[in-house]
């Protein structure tokens, strides 16, 4: 076999593998989408795979979700949205400040130990925290509130933000900041007018990753919320466990509404997200 033929063969195999894995990833999504257009009769005897051929798609589930029961779904949706956004903003502000400090200033010789101290918190299993949080927020009378979730998610995300942003600030040239300082700019001005804008790609990536983490979190929400402050993952679980019989078409519509915005945001920002995910790990 010549080099060219071998090259072509290896390319073909590569595309087959990639296509296969893409299909495996795609099928469940496809299934959720078509299920949201099904109705009860389509669940009898066998699965229906193709809309218009196997089954007649209806908008029942979507009408149910957005017209008939909008309020019922709006509560967890707004809870998730508010909790995710506020906790991510808090984590971003607090974490990037510390990240900047650890990248630009010397704390004796302890900069790396401080970062390691932050990161070690992420080693601990979530199960280690939920019991303490349960007692703590019960004492503070904050059980089943969005405040409790915001506090937990924000503090949980801070170490990650510190870790990634510190690395990110270190890759930015310090000369720009130094020349601004010679020109008499204050430290505050340097941070807000120079460092933060330059670090925008990193900040965006970290923010979206925090957002996704909070949006999808389950264990803590399950422990701290039960009626008023339930988030979407919790809400979905309740729909099944309480009835036993599940309206899969409605569930699929809910799943899509909760997943699609995050999915699109993540994939549009693919470059930054992949960077944020792998950045810290590559250095470690």
């Amino acid at each position: 076999m010549g080099i060219k033929a071998r090259k072509r063969l290896s390319l073909t195999i590569s595309y087959i593998v990639l296509g296969l894995w893409s299909l495996i990833l795609f099928f469940p999504i496809y299934w959720v989408v078509i299920t949201s257009f099904k109705s009860q009769v389509d669940f009898a005897v066998k699965s229906r795979y193709l809309p218009f051929i196997d089954f007649q798609p209806t908008l029942n589930a979507w009408r149910y979700l957005f017209v008939e029961r909008l309020n019922w779904f709006m509560t967890p949706f707004m809870n998730s949205l508010i909790v995710a956004f506020i906790s991510s903003i808090i984590a971003l502000v607090i974490g990037s400040m510390a990240g900047y400090a650890l990248a630009r200033f010397k704390f004796g010789r302890h900069n790396n130990s401080i970062v390691l101290g932050f990161m070690s918190q992420r080693m601990f299993p979530g199960a280690l925290f939920i019991l303490a949080f349960l007692v703590m927020f019960r004492e503070l009378h904050l059980l089943d509130t969005r405040t409790a979730l915001v506090i937990v998610y924000a503090s949980g995300a801070v170490p990650f933000v510190v870790w990634v942003m510190r690395d990110f600030f270190e890759t930015l040239p310090v000369e720009i900041e130094e020349s601004a300082m010679i020109d008499g700019a204050s430290r505050l001005r340097i941070i807000f007018r120079i460092a933060m804008p330059l670090a925008a790609p990193g900040l965006v990536a970290v923010f979206v990753l925090c957002l996704i983490g909070a949006w999808n979190e389950y264990l803590v929400a399950l422990t701290l919320s039960f009626r008023e402050a339930i988030t979407i993952p919790l809400f979905m679980q309740m729909q099944v466990s309480t009835t036993g019989y599940t309206e899969w078409w409605n569930m699929s519509a809910i799943a899509l509404v909760s997943v699609v915005p995050v999915m699109i945001a993540g994939m549009l920002l693919e470059k930054y997200i992949t960077g944020g995910l792998t950045f810290g790990a590559l250095k470690g």
């Binding site: 990833l25 997943v259 945001a265």
Partner: peptide, 12 residues
């Protein structure tokens, strides 16, 4: 496309 599963909630 491969980034997609990481965005989806494990519960979903």
């Amino acid at each position: 496309w491969f980034l997609m599963p990481l965005m989806v909630s494990p519960v979903v």
